[in-house]
């Protein structure tokens, strides 16, 4: 099969935007894991909520899109902090398995509340001209939102790395994620630090969710399940706990998915299985993930 150059660029653009979205969501998993050694199974559902909040802010409250997005991002961040407060903090000193069960419970609760409140029928996201114009580069045509997505992701990543590595809050986050008790001895407010981490992770999930619904303009209460699972895998592939790793994992997963579907169309039906195959392969070769450090299990 001769590959047209234009096809290649077309798919590259798709891969870049899907990879960016995966990266944004994967960051939330990795940050929460880094700080609490907890897999926040509800993260995909937080992503879904971000999209719905934006949807209702535009359709129900008739807000201009940029105000609606800001409101949705803020609300989702607060929701994520509330989730931590109610589902995880009371179990901070409980066995890992209890926290995990709580996370799975929270995920089901949010999904089912979504079905009850938003309705199970898919909704279509309103059109925003800035984001759903088709842009042509010669034979290559992409939706304008697909051009925004990598840029927004890059900017978010830069801001995030600045916060983590250059600010006092970031220093507290790094301390808490290394040694909880030692962080307490530094007079760090551990609860506040964990809360901020959930806030940031949920903000990024909402950002991903909103851009996702503009690219694939449908919403349903279970829309977070598959991206959530894949982005968790992306975070593990990159080395869970490592922000750059999550981004790398997100891009690898996004790119592979698009390219395999594009160039081996007969495998399209297995699209969602690639992530798992990749996960197994990476874990066999590098058990700590691509950028993760081999780490002794904490006892």
């Amino acid at each position: 099969m001769p590959m047209e150059l234009s096809t290649f660029f077309q798919q590259l653009a798709n891969a870049m935007s899907l990879g960016s979205l995966y990266a944004l969501i994967a960051i939330g998993y990795t940050m929460v894991y880094g700080i609490l050694r907890l897999i926040n199974f509800a993260h995909g559902d937080v992503f879904m909520l971000g999209a719905y909040f934006a949807f209702y802010a535009i359709t129900l409250l008739a807000m201009p899109w940029w105000i609606a997005f800001a409101v949705a991002l803020g609300l989702t961040a607060v929701f994520g902090m509330g989730l931590e407060r109610m589902a995880y903090r009371p179990l901070r000193d409980s066995p890992k398995i209890s926290v995990m069960i709580s996370a799975i419970g929270a995920s089901f609760l949010i999904q089912n509340l979504g079905v009850v409140i938003f309705g199970g029928r898919p909704k279509s996201f309103p059109s925003i001209p800035l984001f759903d114009t088709v842009v042509r580069f010669g034979p290559v045509s992409v939706l304008s939102v697909s051009l925004f997505i990598p840029v927004v992701t890059l900017v978010s990543l830069i801001v995030l790395l600045y916060i983590v590595n250059q600010t006092k809050t970031g220093l507290a986050m790094r301390a808490v994620s290394t040694d909880l008790d030692a962080a307490r001895l530094m007079a760090i407010d551990v609860n506040r630090t964990v809360s901020i981490t959930f806030g940031i992770g949920s903000f990024l999930a909402a950002l991903g969710g909103i851009m996702w619904t503009m690219k694939y303009p449908q919403l349903n209460p279970l829309m977070g399940v598959m991206p959530g699972l894949k982005c968790f895998i992306a975070a593990v592939i990159g080395g869970i706990g490592n922000i750059q790793g999550a981004v790398l994992g997100g891009f690898i997963l996004g790119a592979l998915e698009i390219l395999i579907v594009a160039f081996l169309p007969e495998l399209t039906g297995y699209r969602d299985a690639f992530a798992f195959v990749l996960l197994i392969v990476v874990l066999l070769v590098k058990p700590a993930g691509l950028l993760g450090k081999a780490q002794a299990v904490k006892v």
């Binding site: 006092k168 220093l171 507290a172 790094r174 301390a175 290394t178 040694d179 008790d181 030692a182 962080a183 001895l185 530094m186 007079a187 760090i188």
Partner: peptide, 23 residues
């Protein structure tokens, strides 16, 4: 000063000292 020192191994000496003065 806890048993086993509990410095933050992945942070620099400077950052460890900053954490001491965190509050």
């Amino acid at each position: 000063v806890p048993e086993g020192r509990r410095v933050f191994p992945n942070l620099t000496v400077d950052e460890n000292l900053s954490l001491g003065a965190f509050s």
